[in-house]
Design a protein around this nucleic acid. Structure first.
Lengths: 211, 211
DNA sequence: ACCCCGGATAGCCGATCGGATGATGCCGGA
DNA sequence: TCCGGCATCATCCGATCGGCTATCCGGGGT
């Protein structure tokens, strides 16, 4: 007789994507979509009810808790399912957050269906599955550890995004202009940029600042 | 007897999204998916062969020409189909560019299926269909005298966010440094800022740039 | 005990920026 | 047709920035 079918739950706020994954996955003999959720609360509920083997998780779930936080919640359930992140972007922060939250795999939505199926089966077996571009990025980062920005530096970044000059920041933070310049230099080094504008853009992209 | 079925072609580089839209649309009695394309060249070819009533167009098509440019190409064909943009983001620049390219509608991928169907039918009849959030944004812009940033200025903003200096931008855009400075001054005025860092932050916040 | 890191401070200097001012050509709407 | 917006270019000048080199202090880890 055949193996046990792999039970899959979809978590994605885009109805179109849910329909697409369901259509593709359900057409496979060994895979079954047993539930769908459009947000974090639904996800936890559906996973609790259906006890799937694998959860396909989108990272951006519109309002409320995101995919990373939802992954954490799902993984905190008793006998948790494996979570395979299926999302559009492979930002450094996204990947790290997801893996940290307990995701077993990270796939991009532009992956061909075959790759998706293989990833689901692998994840169900407890393997770690990474999209090629994601794997590449992780290796790069592993080679060069990205230094963390200190609290004070984040303050500077906030003022920077508001367009303040060094003198104004100094007044705002009650320190000397020299100190501000010092912080800025460190920020440039850590973010790998050499201008204020670049620092702001990079800080927002790395989610150090919220847009 | 029933009306003529509406013939639809999908253009999207994500297999998952194509499968989803196809599954949803094909389930409707009056809608038929008659072709799919994953990039610009395929899109033009498929549209030429299948002569659809409506093209569902994603704006980001991976490498090569984007959805806006592809929309232009498709609309330049003889007896062109109506183009309904179906994408993830509603950045001001994206919307303007798409409409300028001849798109008849703009819908977001998180729209519920019903809305998608109504949009397709409306577009087929030659109506203009905008997603609520997009319509809201356009109305805001129209109501408040917040001056719109020109395409060239958006280019400048992009380079700005990458931390380029005026000299570098000038080289990149094949214009003189004076021109760059002129654009920057206009940008500052329009965005209500007076520094590069502030311009980047404001541009991202107003979704003129994507983070 | 020692060293590293975050934070604060200082001065110097060349490169760059931002503001002001003015001019040209093109195109599209009133 | 005229006006306005867009894009282009030019100068001038004071203010600011970014890189560099140093110093000092306090706390946490080895």
């Amino acid at each position: 007789m055949a193996e046990q079918r792999i039970r899959v739950v979809l978590v994605d706020d885009h109805p179109v994507v849910r329909a697409g994954v369901r259509a593709l996955v359900d057409a496979q003999d060994d895979l079954d979509v047993v539930g769908e959720a459009a947000d974090s609360a639904q996800a936890v509920a559906v996973v609790g009810e259906t006890r799937p083997d694998v959860v396909l998780m989108d990272l951006s779930l519109g309002d409320g808790p995101g995919g990373a936080e939802t992954t954490r919640l799902v993984r905190d359930l008793p006998e948790p399912p494996h979570v395979l992140v299926l999302t559009t972007y492979d930002t450094e922060a996204d990947v790290l957050e997801a893996v940290d939250a307990g995701a077993a795999g990270y796939l991009l939505k532009d992956a061909p269906p075959d790759e998706l199926f293989r990833a689901i089966r692998g994840t169900a077996r407890g393997e770690t599955v990474l999209a090629p571009s994601v794997a590449t990025r992780l290796l790069q980062r592993a080679a060069s550890p990205s230094p963390k920005v200190s609290p004070r530096e984040v303050e500077i970044l906030r003022l920077l995004a508001r367009g303040l000059g060094n003198k104004e920041m100094a007044r705002e933070l009650l320190v000397s202009e020299a100190t501000v310049k010092s912080h800025l230099s460190h920020i440039y080094t850590k973010l790998g940029v050499d201008t204020r504008a670049g620092a702001v853009a990079t800080a927002i992209e790395r989610r150090i600042l919220r847009p």
